[in-house]
């Protein structure tokens, strides 16, 4: 479903060209749970931006679900993101002033969906993300970190995307809540067959995926399936 071939990305920094990705090639199939792992500065964030259609590669091609997206304009990329990709960020990025339901439904606002349908889907997504109903009308700052990340996951699910892209989703959480979030991803992958790409610098986190693509200095150094996969057995008992 994701076909990256010879992806290159370079930036002009202070007049000099700096190449961040030196031709990265890999494929991710539908239903896979893949971790992209690498230390900071390895180019994994740049790669994530390209996979997430937030940025275009300077060279090579990227096809998402058979469509070459490397040459699309900003607004076309925005539409692709809106309908095909669900983002989960390290720092949650929820709207402070909007309650949980509204935060979750936000991608559907930009899809132009009417309110009733939006709310129905948002509630379904919150269910999938194991978010308890009693907090639906809370504001984000009334929730714990783990709960906020569940809201973000529900928001990523709400448009029923081809791909969920999680950028260090456990980075701001303690081990226990982090484990619960990883459990949510694993369940979404196994029970709902969601395709998930997880970006992390921690091997421990990466080992929750089926396969790890290891990046260093802008190139893939290892791409292999996880032999002793960690299964998060913490079954969401951390509802605050």
């Amino acid at each position: 479903m994701i076909e990256c071939s010879e992806i290159k990305k370079s930036y002009i920094v202070g007049g000099a060209e700096m190449q961040v990705l030196h031709g990265v090639t890999f494929t991710i199939r539908t239903g896979e749970f893949v971790a992209i792992m690498g230390p900071s500065g390895s180019g994994k964030s740049t790669l994530m931006n390209i996979i997430g259609c937030l940025d275009s590669p300077s060279g090579g091609s990227y096809a998402l679900d058979g469509q070459d997206v490397s040459l699309l304009c900003d607004d076309e990329l925005a539409d692709i993101r809106n309908s095909n990709i669900g983002f989960v960020f390290q720092s949650f990025n929820l709207l402070r002033r909007a309650d949980v339901l509204r935060n979750v439904a936000l991608p559907l606002v930009y899809a132009g969906m009417e309110r009733h349908e939006r709310e129905k889907r948002a509630k379904d997504a919150l269910g999938s993300a194991a978010f308890p109903e009693e907090f639906w009308h809370h504001l984000p700052n009334q929730l714990s970190g783990g709960m906020m990340q569940r809201v973000a996951i529900a928001r990523a699910l709400v448009n029923n995307p081809l791909l969920i892209l999680a950028d260090e989703p456990t980075g701001n959480l303690d081990t226990k809540t982090g484990e619960a979030v990883l459990d949510t991803f694993q369940r979404l992958n196994m029970k709902e067959g969601r395709t998930i790409v997880l970006i992390t610098h921690e091997r421990y986190v990466a080992e929750h995926a089926q396969r790890i693509i290891h990046i260093r200095d802008g190139a893939i150094v290892e791409d292999s399936s996880v032999k002793n996969r960690r299964i998060a057995d913490n079954h969401h008992d951390e509802t605050k």
Binding site: A78, D79, N82
Partner: peptide
């Protein structure tokens, strides 16, 4: 940034 990431156009 978030709004744009989840699909808001210019």
């Amino acid at each position: 940034g978030l709004r744009k990431a989840i699909g808001a156009r210019r």
